[in-house]
């Protein structure tokens, strides 16, 4: 059973962050902009110096090489980056054939040039790029920010299905209360320098 555990994590102005994300569950993080949500995700991905202990199913973050940690705990940033000319260059060879239909792309998408993708298309492909790595934990930074309402719900449903099926532990930064309501198993909000659990239906 996968478990992403944060113990007494401190990064930037945040401190004393402790929480557990069991495999197959989504923990949502919310807070005002600039409150440090993205930085918290970056610390969990070990891209940012931080205090405290983070572990995945018993393996400490600092006990394995950083790139190994990041291939098991994959972060999808709010603004995904593409460095090759063609979409296909960013994926393993068979990722095009396995492209999920929920994303709404034809199989030829792998031959498209990145410059003709809209921001919403990039965001959907960035999610698949991360999932194709078969991560044990996912760190999603506003994964549906550039999507319209219809495709937001389609993508949410697809993501939740993959998360449950593969038992992935997910930290999901969101600001839309309705989305949090739909996807979260637990919800924490950043209040000042600490993380507070939000109970009930808000």
């Amino acid at each position: 059973m996968t478990d992403l555990v944060l113990e007494n994590l401190g990064v930037g102005t945040l401190s004393g962050v402790s929480l557990t994300v069991p495999g197959g569950q989504v923990v949502c993080l919310s807070g005002a902009s600039g409150s440090g949500k993205s930085r918290l995700l970056r610390a969990v991905a070990d891209l940012e110096p931080h205090d405290g202990r983070i572990s995945l199913t018993g393996t400490g973050q600092q006990d394995i090489p950083a790139h190994q940690w990041r291939s098991r705990v994959v972060m999808v940033p709010a603004d995904s980056q593409w460095w090759f000319d063609k979409v296909g260059g960013h994926f393993a060879d068979d990722a095009g054939a396995r492209l999920p239909s929920a994303l709404g792309f034809p199989p030829e998408v792998m031959g498209w040039s990145v410059s003709r993708l809209s921001s919403g298309e990039r965001q959907r492909l960035a999610l698949w790029r991360a999932l194709a790595l078969k991560p044990e934990a996912l760190l999603l930074d506003e994964p549906t920010a550039n999507l319209d309402n219809d495709s937001t719900e389609t993508i949410e449903a697809w993501l939740l299905d993959e998360i449950r099926r593969r038992q992935i532990a997910v930290l999901w930064v969101a600001h839309d209360p309705a989305q949090i309501q739909r996807v979260a198993n637990a919800h924490y909000r950043i209040q000042g320098t600490t993380l507070e659990r939000v109970h009930g239906s808000d």
Partner: peptide, 10 residues
């Protein structure tokens, strides 16, 4: 941003 995104993918 590109370098960090590549790091995020392991």
């Amino acid at each position: 941003a590109v370098i960090e995104n590549r790091l995020m993918l392991g």
